[in-house]
Design a protein around this nucleic acid. Structure first.
Lengths: 102, 102
DNA sequence: CAGCATCCGAAAGGATACTG
DNA sequence: CAGTATCCTTTCGGATGCTG
């Protein structure tokens, strides 16, 4: 991604939460390659900024869900705009990089 | 800024170039606190990605101007959307951070 | 399952001094 | 003026192993 909200994963996490609450383990799968530590860090940062809400279910087995707050949802529009731009100009960006040093 | 295009300064550089070509020294003043090395790095990266054009005037004294390319200008819209969001929710973001740990 | 603790390497960002 | 060169600190992201 040519842009970032907060840290490396924040934008992708927010988009993963677009469809509703997701569990820690679901996010881990969706964001292939992220380590639990980094996922936790990113989620904590998003929580701190009021973009994401954390829900701990009091079940026998640990079950934690993350959900966008109203503030977080308000970011989806601008984020979609950026993603659309990136998708639209992706080729052009790659080409520019390739033809560099030429 | 809660978001980034490329490196730390890229978004701000692009916005500085919104009004037309700017000289290296002008950017340095506009982006208070940036060191020449970092400014050069960021500009080179933007050039490599085809977002910014570099013009060297062949005058007696060194004079280099930077200008947005068409691709760079196409980013102004999405960027403005993000900036508007940030400005609109700035207070809320600060509040969330403050009331953290409390 | 949902993390925390620890350690690590790479990269980013910056301070300072110097150059054509 | 428009950068380079050098050095340094901080931050980021990740790997691995352990815990309630």
């Amino acid at each position: 991604m040519p842009f970032r909200i907060g840290d490396k994963w924040a934008a992708m996490i927010i988009r993963c939460l677009e469809g509703g609450p997701r569990r820690f383990s679901e996010l881990r799968v969706a964001l292939r390659g992220i380590t639990p530590k980094v996922l936790t860090q990113s989620l904590r940062a998003l929580e701190r900024d009021g973009l994401v809400l954390r829900h701990v279910a009091d079940s026998a087995t640990p079950r934690v869900e993350y959900e966008l707050s109203a503030l977080g949802r308000s970011l989806l529009g601008p984020l979609a705009v950026m993603c659309a731009w990136a998708e639209e100009h992706w080729e052009q960006l790659l080409d520019a990089r390739e033809s560099w040093a030429g």
